[in-house]
């Protein structure tokens, strides 16, 4: 008998009486609250606060022009910037794919568009169709993700509701820069992945003068 059939046979003999699945609908008024600040109903504001607390940073911007300006303040032409956003084609390498993910070894900044953010934990959901290469968000020295300000869901239940039955080969939640506290619980940003993580939240209602 194969190991598969042997294992399944023992499990069938041993598994207890059937227990039904619970509903995963969040009870009323769920989410995350901060007792110090009262109820956090402004999801974008909560998203930014949590993201900053876990070592990331955020900018609310009026659009792509403003994103380009902020990046130009920090990166020069010496830096290798790769992006999946055609709006940034003038300042970044924008390609559909690479022959080999190892070609991305020396990327300084990757700018990718994510699907949405999650207020309770500062994470953004992104699938491989927006990564160019699966390795890119991890191998780059710095990562910037772009979402729309209206696309911030309050918690993970809403996140999976939004993902639904979406088809993807690979998808990930990214919350802040890569980090470790393995050496005496001292937090160090930049373990193996990006050393910094920026999220741009595009607010279409914002005029260029009103950004912060």
């Amino acid at each position: 008998m194969s190991s598969r059939d042997k294992i399944l046979g023992v499990i069938r003999a041993n598994q207890p009486e059937g227990k039904s699945l619970p509903s995963v609908t969040l009870p009323e008024a769920g989410g995350v609250t901060d007792p110090a600040k009262g109820d956090m109903t402004d999801t974008a504001r909560q998203f930014i606060e949590v993201l900053e607390a876990i070592g990331g940073r955020a900018f609310i911007v009026s659009g792509w022009e403003r994103i380009a300006t902020i990046i130009k303040e920090e990166y020069t032409q010496q830096h290798r910037i790769v992006s999946g956003c055609k709006e940034l084609a003038r300042m970044a390498e924008v390609r559909d794919r690479y022959e080999d993910p190892h070609e991305l070894e020396n990327v300084d900044l990757a700018i990718l568009e994510a699907h949405f953010g999650v207020a309770e934990n500062g994470a953004c959901w992104i699938t491989e169709d927006r990564m160019i290469e699966r390795a890119l968000p991890f191998i780059t020295q710095n990562l910037a993700l772009v979402i729309h300000k209206k696309d911030v869901v309050p918690h993970m239940h809403a996140a999976y509701e939004r993902i639904g039955q979406a088809v993807y080969g690979f998808g990930t939640f990214i919350a802040g820069p890569s980090k470790t506290a393995d050496i005496e619980q001292s937090l160090v940003l930049g373990a193996h992945g990006p050393c910094s993580m920026t999220v741009f939240l595009i607010d279409e209602e914002l005029s260029d003068a009103g950004f912060y």
């Binding site: 995350v32 999650v118 934990n121 998808g171 919350a175 890569s178 992945g193």
Partner: peptide, 11 residues
């Protein structure tokens, strides 16, 4: 609140 990466490998 969550790990930095929660990666979903499907294919």
């Amino acid at each position: 609140p969550i790990t930095t990466y929660s990666s979903h490998f499907k294919q």
